[in-house]
Design a binder for these strands. Sequence first.
DNA 1: CATGAATGAGAGTTCATTCAT
DNA 2: GATGAATGAACTCTCATTCAT
Lengths: 218, 218, 218, 218
Amino acid sequence: MNQPTTAPIKSRRVAATEPKLPASEELTKSKRIVLSAALELFAANGYGSTSIRDIAQRANMKSSSLYNHYKSKEDILATLIEIGHIELFRRLRAAVVNAESAAASQLKAFIAANVRSQAEYPMLAVVVNHELHELGKKHIGPAMTLRAQSVELFLDILEKGKAEGVFNTPHPPSLAASAIGAMCSRIAEWFTPEHEQTIEKIESAHVDYALNIVGFNQ
Amino acid sequence: MNQPTTAPIKSRRVAATEPKLPASEELTKSKRIVLSAALELFAANGYGSTSIRDIAQRANMKSSSLYNHYKSKEDILATLIEIGHIELFRRLRAAVVNAESAAASQLKAFIAANVRSQAEYPMLAVVVNHELHELGKKHIGPAMTLRAQSVELFLDILEKGKAEGVFNTPHPPSLAASAIGAMCSRIAEWFTPEHEQTIEKIESAHVDYALNIVGFNQ
Amino acid sequence: MNQPTTAPIKSRRVAATEPKLPASEELTKSKRIVLSAALELFAANGYGSTSIRDIAQRANMKSSSLYNHYKSKEDILATLIEIGHIELFRRLRAAVVNAESAAASQLKAFIAANVRSQAEYPMLAVVVNHELHELGKKHIGPAMTLRAQSVELFLDILEKGKAEGVFNTPHPPSLAASAIGAMCSRIAEWFTPEHEQTIEKIESAHVDYALNIVGFNQ
Amino acid sequence: MNQPTTAPIKSRRVAATEPKLPASEELTKSKRIVLSAALELFAANGYGSTSIRDIAQRANMKSSSLYNHYKSKEDILATLIEIGHIELFRRLRAAVVNAESAAASQLKAFIAANVRSQAEYPMLAVVVNHELHELGKKHIGPAMTLRAQSVELFLDILEKGKAEGVFNTPHPPSLAASAIGAMCSRIAEWFTPEHEQTIEKIESAHVDYALNIVGFNQ
DNA sequence: CATGAATGAGAGTTCATTCAT
DNA sequence: GATGAATGAACTCTCATTCAT
């Protein structure tokens, strides 16, 4: 018999097939296996449509064994969502910090980092964006904090560009933030490494879109 | 005692509080009540997290009574999603048909109609966008067809603009379609009639964003 | 095949074999069947050792059907315990009210009623005495109230007898109450209608024991 | 930080807070720790409501470590129940043996020893009385033997007193045995060293009660 | 049309126990 | 002796659905 649980899952929610997780996290091997299995299933089918037994099967365990590593199904989702938020915010902040100080440079760096995150961890991004609401109040705190920080960082850049006189738009920044956030998030849903557009082109396009939206002149 | 089930539902998925449905549909009163209840719950909590009993309670019925009106829970979702797609496509097509024939005019009309749809039926839009994947193959056909038609209509406009020489962008049209589609869809998640931006301003902003993205000159 | 679930259950906790319930309660037929099944099993094996499936099987239902009648396993226990307390307290109070007003007469009536209750509903008595602690705070209120009323009623009689000068004992009333309560409760554990002692003799003996304990003279 | 598991457990089943065990037994330190932890939990919450993990936690171990000391959860209960029965019977027999030979003296000694046992090891007594039925046939033998011996010893005293002409009662001895046994056992449920009645007074009262019940003259 | 009751399937979770380390 | 991990079995309970009334 061949490996029973490794076939990719067909899904209309995410085109990617690899449940990729950031490497850095200090996770035991078992925890990673469980998270990967859950990530793939949550991304493809949703949290509610994934049973603890599904996860266990894909992780080559029995369902009761999962509880040696995570306290509950929700705990698994919370871990994934926290990892996703941490990774995204780390990248966004690093990008801005390392960019030249001009607002336009910072915006470019910010968008590029965002696009790359969506493309590199598409399943994680989909789960973060679509399943956040499944988390109860006890689990949602850390994610909301990081999310708020990302938004703030973005709005700060917009304001700075306005002050510099390089971002000119008659429309309120909150609308730009919503629109730009949405268009980046969407990438995770259709991107795969085999996509006909290279990631560089996708990045470049979205940087341009964002600059246009914020009214960047020259 | 006041009506027991009419209090709005707190949700992180949608800001709107009214489960508004297009008026036109030929629906019995009972069917509308059921659909409204389901719409509200699906939008707020998701299809998987909404039980048939939840819907029944909110519709002031017992769960078994639902089956006098719909064949299954999935049938209710399919109906909602079909209504949403029909309404959206009807508006998009009408907008384009009634617009002046210039590509830019058509694009403006298309985006405006899209934005208005999201704002007028935010719950329906959220359900359409987030719960489509819960539909099995038997139910998904009509929605997919309409969805494809909308995309085609949009891409036709882009191509026409290119041919006219008014849309100039180095980036592929599929990326523009994704970005513009995403930013319009997102509106449904945060818009309410009480939002600080009027719907006119939101429409105007998104029309501008879209024109920028497709590289409209003059 | 003969009826599959009607055989009595062997138990070291209760000798009785009939899960008898007071007739008066306004209970649907289904509710009574469930309660009887649960009573028998709780009395014989304990609440913790009885599964919801055991109850269902003995009630000739599927386990999920139980939930059409009771909200939870604990709800079933709470109902039984409340019925038991109500019945016992009703009998105690009626006995005292109908007795002659002399303290000794009231005590005799009180003890006789208590003994009869234990003998008539032995399973209910055993469950009430042994499983009360399984009830969470939400369910325990009514039972505790009735229990406290019974104790108070008993202590009032003791005090009255003391005041009348007919109950003379150097020992505190709380000890008498504990001892008498214990010896009555114990009856439920071994009594059956087939017991070699008639219920009249058992009643008479315990009345005498109680009178002796409270130091009744003449 | 202080020891995490030493706080007493709230319980409606037993008022005592110390899981006291007879000193004599030849038990390793670890075994005693496990037994104490189990005793406290079984007394407070019942055998069925206590998990092996609960016991381990209270014994500052992991659950798998318990199995280095006891073969099973039931083995722990069986050990406790055997210790309880041995201790009680040893005391009862010693009391009778050391008493003067008159039946009344023997009865007094027997009751006094019984009361003292309940008061000195209340948790053990509660577990012995309430959880005996959880033991399977394989484990119950020793306890039943000792229990039978205690009853026999008691009935022998009653008979002797009858023969001596000092115990006169119209009621059968089995009823007296039941009543007296019940009232002594009950003590374990409410006694604590801080109780407002001293153990001497409690003992004296129950000796009197017993003498009254068996119809002691003079 | 409405509903109380029934039910098979399956949910998430806990359990006592085993075993390799 | 201690323990992290694994696991089969069982748990209570919820689910969507059916059907007789």
